[in-house]
Design a protein around this nucleic acid. Structure first.
Length: 116
DNA sequence: TGATTGACCAACT
DNA sequence: CAGTTGGCCAATC
């Protein structure tokens, strides 16, 4: 574990951070981008999640939402309902594609993790 | 190898 | 206050 080779791509770092999101908590694309480096665009994090299926390990992509706590990526799961069901399975309430109590459940890697 | 795309975000009109 | 635009940067066409 932590076999972070210097050749690790930006995507691999995104996956590693997402894996660290605790069960029942959520984070955002922008927060991950900011944690990895202020220059990286949040869109890249979204694109990384799109390719997350290529990652050998499990990536809880359903715990990543946009800045408003909205399930913008739900369409990229098995079905438009799967992302919400996965979150509700972790006691995260979702209504109209929005995470309820988002501010309270928000997990900021820059605040919860040591500096990279 | 240039142009396009994208599960975003902030600023601007 | 809602809709549009530009920027971020790697991957894909």
């Amino acid at each position: 574990m932590h076999t972070q080779t210097p050749e690790a791509s930006f995507f691999d770092r995104v996956y590693e951070v997402v894996r660290l999101v605790p069960r029942g908590r959520v984070t955002t694309y922008g927060a991950i981008a900011a944690y990895l480096g202020s220059g990286r665009g949040a869109r890249m994090v979204g694109w990384a999640m799109n390719q997350s299926h290529a990652c050998r390990q499990y990536v809880p992509a359903h715990r990543v939402v946009n800045r408003q706590g909205m399930l913008t990526g739900k369409h990229h799961f098995g079905g438009p309902r799967l992302m919400q069901q996965l979150l509700e399975g972790e006691d995260v309430r979702v209504e109209r594609d929005q995470v309820q109590d988002f501010k309270r459940l928000f997990w900021d890697p820059a605040r919860e993790l040591p500096l990279p």
